[in-house]
Amino acid sequence: MQTISSCVEAIVLEQPFLEEALSKGIINYSALADVLQDDVSQTLGKPVKAGAIMMALRRYKDRLTVSKPYYGLNALLEQLGDITLRSNLSDFTFRNSNTLIDSQAAILNTIKNKSHIFYTFTRGILESNIIISSSEKEAVLESFKNENCIALKENLSAISLVLPKHNTKVAGLYYQILKRLAWQNVSLYEVISTTNEFTIVVEDTFVDSAFSIIKNLNKN
């Protein structure tokens, strides 16, 4: 059975920025209750007073303060490793095919002795993605000449962050990174992740802001 508290919590959980603002105590409860009143009333099928919603918001905020494991996340942020910036990158998207793996093998053979080249390959269900140093653009086009290129984006940069080995044991790390980028209106073109490394790819116009945000993740 739904209650005012469960209904309010469900609404807040759908809006991470709102939850963050609540946890920091920077929300006007009265104004927010007025905004939520219609939605809560409609969900419960009966009129709900703004005062009852305010009480539910305050109780939820108290639970956030007690239960959120910020201590573990803050400790993890303090242990973030090196940051690497690679610029002048191109992003190719190809439709998956039976020959795509052979095309990938061809480009890998071309760049195998070029240790300075940036290269990533991601295979999805319907399409695959290659991000590579723009100096190898023609080599990619030649290697994949028989494939269906869906998109090509140039003037990109990649910012890679080394994560502590126990990063998978603490919830919220990626949320903290993506939240801060979103707050500064930094648009991500691609996100690449391995177990202990996190990389964002952005257009060159966002690279200065993105690098500054990643560099200062461990500062409140």
Score class of each variant (00 low, 15 high):
residue 79 Q to H: 13
residue 182 A to D: 15
residue 111 I to M: 07
residue 95 R to A: 14
residue 45 G to W: 03
residue 34 D to N: 05
residue 57 L to Y: 04
residue 20 E to L: 02
residue 120 T to V: 08
residue 216 N to M: 06
residue 202 V to L: 05
residue 98 N to M: 14
residue 66 V to C: 05
residue 73 L to C: 07
residue 136 E to I: 13
residue 187 S to N: 15
residue 160 S to Q: 13
residue 78 E to W: 09
residue 150 I to F: 07
residue 220 N to R: 10
residue 157 S to W: 02
residue 102 D to E: 15
residue 188 L to I: 10
residue 183 W to L: 14
residue 22 L to E: 05
residue 215 K to W: 08
residue 94 F to E: 06
residue 1 M to T: 12
residue 91 D to S: 14
residue 144 F to T: 08
residue 109 N to G: 15
residue 195 T to E: 15
residue 47 P to S: 10
residue 133 S to M: 09
residue 45 G to C: 10
residue 125 I to A: 10
residue 90 S to H: 04
residue 61 K to V: 14
residue 132 I to S: 07
residue 47 P to M: 11
residue 45 G to M: 03
residue 163 L to Y: 03
residue 53 I to M: 08
residue 193 S to P: 06
residue 152 L to D: 03
residue 34 D to E: 14
residue 161 L to V: 11
residue 202 V to A: 03
residue 145 K to H: 13
residue 116 H to A: 11
residue 13 L to A: 06
residue 63 R to H: 11
residue 163 L to S: 02
residue 90 S to L: 02
residue 103 S to H: 02
residue 98 N to P: 01
residue 146 N to K: 12
residue 18 L to K: 00
residue 145 K to C: 04
residue 132 I to T: 02
residue 154 E to F: 06
residue 194 T to A: 10
residue 202 V to H: 00
residue 209 S to Q: 12
residue 40 V to S: 09
residue 35 V to Y: 11
residue 168 T to L: 13
residue 43 T to K: 10
residue 59 R to Y: 12
residue 198 F to T: 04
